[in-house]
Simulated scan of single mutants.
Amino acid sequence: MTGRELDAPGPVSGLDRLALGGAALGNLFRGASDEVARATVDAAWGLGVRRFDTAPHYGLGLSERRLGAALRDRPRAAYTLSTKVGRLLLPDPRPGDDLADGFAVPATHRRVWDFSADGVRRSLEESLERLGLDRVDTVYLHDPDDHAEQAFREGYPALERLRAEGTVARIGAGMNQSAMLARFVRDTDVDEVLCAGRYTLLDQSAAADLLPAAHARGTSVVLGGVFNSGLLADPGPDATYDYAQAPPELLARARKLSELAGRYGLTLRAAALAFPRAHPAVTTVLVGARTPEEVRDAVAQASSRVPDDYWKEARAEGLLPEGVPVPTGEPS
Rank of each mutant, 00 (worst) to 15 (best):
S13A: 15
L15K: 04
A19S: 14
A23F: 10
F29Q: 14
R38W: 13
D42T: 13
G46W: 01
G48R: 09
D53Y: 02
T54A: 09
P56W: 02
H57E: 13
L60T: 05
R65W: 01
R66L: 06
R66Q: 07
A77P: 03
L89N: 02
D92P: 00
P93R: 03
P95Q: 12
L99M: 09
A100V: 13
V105G: 01
P106V: 05
T108I: 04
S116Q: 08
G119K: 09
G119S: 10
R121C: 11
L124S: 07
S127Q: 08
L128C: 09
T138H: 12
T138I: 13
H142W: 12
F152W: 13
R153Q: 14
R170Q: 12
Q177M: 02
L181Y: 06
A182M: 06
D189S: 14
L194W: 10
D209T: 15
A216I: 06
V222Y: 13
G230Q: 02
D234N: 14
P235C: 04
A239Y: 05
Y241Q: 01
P247G: 08
P248D: 12
E249G: 02
A254V: 02
R255M: 01
E259F: 01
G265P: 03
L266G: 02
R277N: 00
V287N: 08
R296I: 01
S303A: 15
S303P: 05
V306R: 04
Y310Q: 07
E317V: 03
G318F: 08
L319V: 12
T328G: 15
S332V: 13
